[in-house]
Write a protein that binds this DNA or RNA. Structure first.
Lengths: 192, 192
DNA sequence: ACAGCGATAGACCGACTGTTCTATCTACGA
DNA sequence: TCGTAGATAGAACAGTCGGTCTATCGCTGT
């Protein structure tokens, strides 16, 4: 088994690609990825079969990370579903406020990957389903009359906040989304 | 002056680029644009100075068209500001339902045009300001207590609906956004 | 009739795309 | 100690990118 050693080429490649594809879009050149990871050209094709394979793997890893972040954000907010859901929007507020925020990686990927058959699309689709399921679970626990529909509305607010955060960050879109989220959640029986 | 004649190379180029950049993203090649417009290579550089110039001009024209469409959608909905604003979301519902819908052109442009100094960004920014102003005007007429903030929320809902429409059209995101828009608008004194 | 202008077709450019290849180096296990 | 696997550097591939250039065609106004 791997004794804790310095990250191998595969790991370095994923790290570099994760950052570079976000910062400069999916159009970054292979050369830039290799230089960023300090990795030989051959290693890329050995480990991922090509640029598309690398991108897909990056999306997969990012999705897993972000999904985990959603969970831990909600867990850190305590047991109340209402608080847990609103914490997501507070978190988004922090994210879009960072000056290195460049928009939602998954939306950008879907818009940039022209080929509808690109395996990356399946990853982003699944990611959104997982997040929706996360929301739905909280809303169900809350006794919301339409948990699925409300979860879709929350995801729409997330999308909107992330998009608005990329194009007009000064307007604090996460706060605006949070207000609306309160109303979505507030339809539950225990509403104040 | 120009007697009504067949559209010249400049017009053809704009038309073709408007469609191709939307369908295939900003990454479409110059050759594809030329072939799509049936125009000589030289004409592009004569009229627009290069691909970036063409793209910027396409964004400018699209923005003017879409802004006009917002106005006419609202005008067709009658004089009541509430009805006029909600009509926007009904219209968005039709747009995202079309099977050739490929997402919001302006968001895609901002995400794809990596260089923050690209003149296209100024166009999209101005476009969003105009639409926001349109919303603000209606909300003000309605006596909304926070017309600017509410307009920002409506634009966030528009962004969210357009983004969701691109990634999961089956969920009827425009309807979900419309519900929330009603609540935004409903904060005005004349609320039912 | 002819000059001039706008458009056309298409060769050509260097730079860069993703990919394949050879050759060399290094570390680990038998 | 030697062989092998994995990594390295880098040449080379065909293809495409955006952009420049030459040459020719066709229309218009004088």
């Amino acid at each position: 088994m791997s004794t804790r050693t310095e990250p191998g080429p595969r790991q370095r490649l994923l790290d570099a690609a994760q950052e570079l594809t976000y910062r400069h879009g999916m159009g970054v050149g292979v050369d830039a990825l290799l230089k960023g990871a300090n990795v030989a050209r051959r290693s890329l094709y050995e480990h991922f079969g090509g640029k598309d394979g690398l991108i897909t793997e990056v999306l997969r890893r990012s999705a897993a990370e972000d999904e985990a972040r959603y969970r831990q954000t909600m867990d850190a907010a305590g047991p109340d579903p209402r608080t847990r859901l609103l914490a997501v929007f507070d978190r988004i507020g922090e994210i879009v406020a960072r000056d290195d925020y460049r928009g939602c990686r998954y939306l950008a990927a879907d818009l940039a990957l022209a080929d509808p058959g690109h395996p990356g699309h399946a990853v982003t689709r699944e990611y959104r389903e997982h997040v929706t399921a996360l929301f739905t679970a909280e809303l169900t626990r809350l006794g919301h009359p339409r948990p699925a529909a409300a979860a879709a509305q929350l995801l729409l607010l997330v999308d909107g906040a992330l998009a608005a955060g990329a194009t007009r960050p000064a307007t604090d879109p996460a706060a605006a989304a949070r207000e609306l989220a309160e109303q979505v959640i507030g339809q539950a029986p225990g509403a104040r």
